[in-house]
Design a protein around this nucleic acid. Structure first.
Length: 210
DNA sequence: CTCCGGATTCGT
DNA sequence: CGAATCCGGAGT
């Protein structure tokens, strides 16, 4: 009888050694406690963090360069502002989980749930810089999901997991390097439309709308 | 059940 | 600026 070897599991040091512009980086999932904090703080600290997916033995990594904060049921632009529904129930759950939904029938958007259970806050990942095993554009929420293989099957996924997680090894980005702008596409949100809840690395070429 | 619009992207 | 394309939310 043949003994099939288990599928190869990429080792962090092996993949990154000499191939990443960020040096040899160990990619450990951020702990749930990271997400269990003020959403704007989490959003800003996610700039420079790595977003990682592992599928069929291929690890894809992107460095987050643009995010938006969605501040829960009071925030008219936030899906959770209309209460718990089948779609939004993940946002009402504990932090550190992925909220992935389909938009316009053809794109996916990926968010991380923040703050304590019931607050229904999240951070939308809007753009990443390609780091490892990424083909196609990543300068937009739908584009990065496509390029990293993120779809609705990952909705609710625990981000403290080996196949879908975020990791942060760099020091926090200096506040002066973070641009603060109104969020994209939330014109319907009344007073919340103009809130400065979109954050990106100033001057970074991978931002969706510089 | 029907209707409507959307945390987008791409082409005109 | 409009089309693509389909699901979720709201209303009947």
């Amino acid at each position: 009888m043949d003994h099939d070897l288990p599928p190869p599991r990429p080792e962090h040091s092996e993949v990154f050694a000499g191939s990443s512009p960020y040096g040899e980086v160990s990619l450990n999932p951020l702990p749930r406690s990271f997400y269990d904090r003020d959403t704007v703080v989490v959003a800003k600290e996610l700039l420079g963090a790595f977003l990682v997916t592992v599928k069929d033995g291929t690890r894809r990594t992107g460095r987050i360069v643009e995010v938006e904060a969605y501040l829960g049921t009071q925030d008219k632009a936030c899906h959770s502002s209309r209460g718990i529904t089948p779609r939004t129930r993940i946002m009402f759950g504990p932090p550190g989980h992925a909220y992935v939904y389909m938009i316009y029938g053809m794109h996916h958007c990926m968010n991380v749930v923040t703050e304590r259970e019931g607050q229904a806050c999240a951070v939308l990942i809007r753009a990443v810089e390609p780091v490892e095993n990424i083909e196609g554009r990543t300068n937009g929420p739908g584009l990065l999901c496509r390029s990293m293989g993120i779809d609705r099957t990952l909705n609710g996924h625990d981000l403290e997991s080996p196949d879908f997680y975020l990791s942060k090894e760099e020091a926090a980005v200096a506040p002066s390097a973070i641009a603060e702008r109104p969020r994209i596409g939330v014109h319907y949100a009344g007073e919340w439309t103009d809130r400065l809840l979109r954050f990106y690395l100033e001057g970074n070429p991978f931002v969706s709308k510089p």
